[in-house]
Design a protein around this nucleic acid. Structure first.
Lengths: 333, 333
DNA sequence: CTGAAAGCGCTTACAG
DNA sequence: CTGAAAGCGCTTACAG
């Protein structure tokens, strides 16, 4: 409650001197400094950051847009994002959009109305999306190919191809997919890697074994039921994230389908649960922490008007082979 | 960039009229209103919320302190918290403390320096902790008993007792524990329920089978190894959250211990993964969304100076019986 | 219904 | 080194 004015009164100096004592103590005499410090103590002065930020025209906040905070990959990226922000004196405003375009807009308004200095989006934009207005600092963490935004991501297509190549190397030829929403740019990029791997191996694409999920456990379970009921079932499943993959394992097991003996399953992200699923999940890891750190640094640079070397930064992924995949059975017909 | 001043210039009215047209249009003539609206369009005016908030002495932000965003129970509470905040025109500032006292302090400073109007803590305070200063609006979601803060929570002791009672009803007499950090108030409350259930059943407490974890998957795995190596192993394990329980299941299985045949396992929270662990986890559910919603509402009331009916709100828990628990084997010695 | 003015809490040229 | 003053963008009594 007490302002700089009260401090000045108690210290017997002007508010200008108080301000200087607080922010640039070297510009103030020892004596004034001491008087101010004592007064600050006495009146329990705490600076009003709203005033400070307002005057500096810097909110020192970043809004982070995420479709689903309860997705462990995103949660991990955000932790790292937040840590990096904190180190640089910034706070993060959480914007869980639940996948809604409208919410996304509302949160972007925070930066338009200067409640935030910039934004980081953890969702990928549709390919045709218009680039953000110039006055808005924004970076896309976990983005997709061809996004018109500055972007920090892995090569989703390549990563997917790596996993599917691995399945093919195990002898699988009929490889199903549990994808995210088909309109989701991540789904599109990852499907691209899948079809590439297939075509390289001369395996025809079969749309019937690509089932749409939405990156949630529930959708993985649904998809599993669908595959279980299929007559000509795939021998392997490429799942576009770990949540759906782990759900699929359990969903399939509910139908007495053995993993990996009867079906190999792969995930995407390498969340911690993948280590302790049964069987442990073969997946491709994303450097979630690194993505968060680099994305925040990139955004902060943008905000501070420092040039950014590259608009798109692609970080390495890694195939993690565990026990949910096995050689295709030599069963015929 | 354009301020209310530019709008006033373009519209040919005073800034007071512009301000009124924007916030209380009924106090302005139709003609002025139209002129202002046109000018707003023309100069792409967006209000500067930093100025607005500063003047109103309301940041319209809430800081949410959480020890670990990547904990699924917390993530779920936060989503709900945030949704409720959003509905009321508030934003949430994320404060992931990683369990550090220091970080906690730093984030609480946001409210002291008026970058936030209040705080919600998802961690429980130590019993002896001093109550928060009066001028700070704060509520504890997921708190512990006897916290000196306004608090929305389940009855942790009772919920724990319910689970352990259930294990006892299955014939288990040697029931191990994987706890959180022993200093953590949740651990304390939950251990209380455990010992109560034991003593009600006339089972002596054995400190050797209470192993300390920290609510993470890694610590669950460690604890599992510890139990696996034990000569006189418990027949059941009460784990203080689901992450540790699911990790324990897998950790134990790595030692060829069958769940639930050789050991029953229970969790706490009922995160979504509990449905798809193998076997699905018997646990006690917390109404995470409800906790978040009620906590935010309570805080907002506090901020607006509306009286709060009760300082502590206890929400119901529920025992969820799945397949990770079974009758104790009639094995002797 | 309207405008001129004060003021929210700070910082920073400017003059001394 | 110090203080008086202006100003950041808004809102709101106050007078008309």
């Amino acid at each position: 409650m007490s302002s700089i004015r009260e401090v000045s009164r108690v210290a017997g100096v002007s508010i200008a001197t108080v301000s200087r004592a607080l922010s640039t103590p070297e510009k103030v005499s020892k004596k004034s400094l001491r008087k101010v410090q004592e007064a600050v103590e006495k009146v329990h002065y705490r600076p009003n950051m709203m005033a400070r930020n307002f005057r500096a025209a810097r909110s020192h906040s970043i809004v982070v847009l995420v479709p689903n905070l309860a997705n462990l990959h995103f949660a991990t990226v955000i932790r790292s994002l937040e840590e990096e922000a904190h180190k640089n004196g910034y706070s993060v405003l959480l914007g869980d959009t639940g996948g809604s375009e409208e919410r996304d807009q509302e949160y972007m308004n925070l930066v338009e109305t200067r409640q935030a200095d910039g934004a980081i989006q953890l969702l990928a934009h549709a390919k045709g999306a218009p680039p953000p207005p110039d006055h808005i600092a924004i970076v896309n963490a976990c983005g997709a190919e061809d996004t018109p935004y500055a972007c920090v991501r892995i090569d989703n297509a390549e990563a997917s191809k790596t996993v599917v190549d691995y399945l093919i190397s195990l002898g699988h030829r009929r490889i199903g997919v549990i994808s995210g929403l088909k309109s989701n740019p991540h789904s599109i990029d990852r499907l691209k890697g899948y079809t590439q791997a297939l075509s390289n191996a001369g395996i025809p694409f079969d749309a019937n074994i690509v089932v749409e999920g939405d990156f949630t456990i529930a959708s993985g379970l649904n998809a599993a039921n669908h595959f279980a009921a299929m007559k000509n079932r795939p021998t392997a499943l490429f799942c576009m994230n770990d949540e759906m993959a782990i759900a699929a394992i359990q969903g399939l097991r509910n139908h007495d389908i053995k993993i990996p003996e009867e079906m190999s399953i792969t995930g995407f992200d390498d969340i911690e649960f993948s280590r302790i699923s049964d069987p442990p999940l073969t997946t491709v890891s994303q450097p979630a922490k690194e993505i968060g750190k680099v994305a925040m640094r990139t955004l902060l640079k943008k905000i501070n008007g420092e040039g950014i070397a590259q608009e798109t930064i692609v970080l390495p992924h890694e195939l993690i082979v565990r026990k949910s995949t096995a050689l295709a059975q030599k069963q015929k017909g």
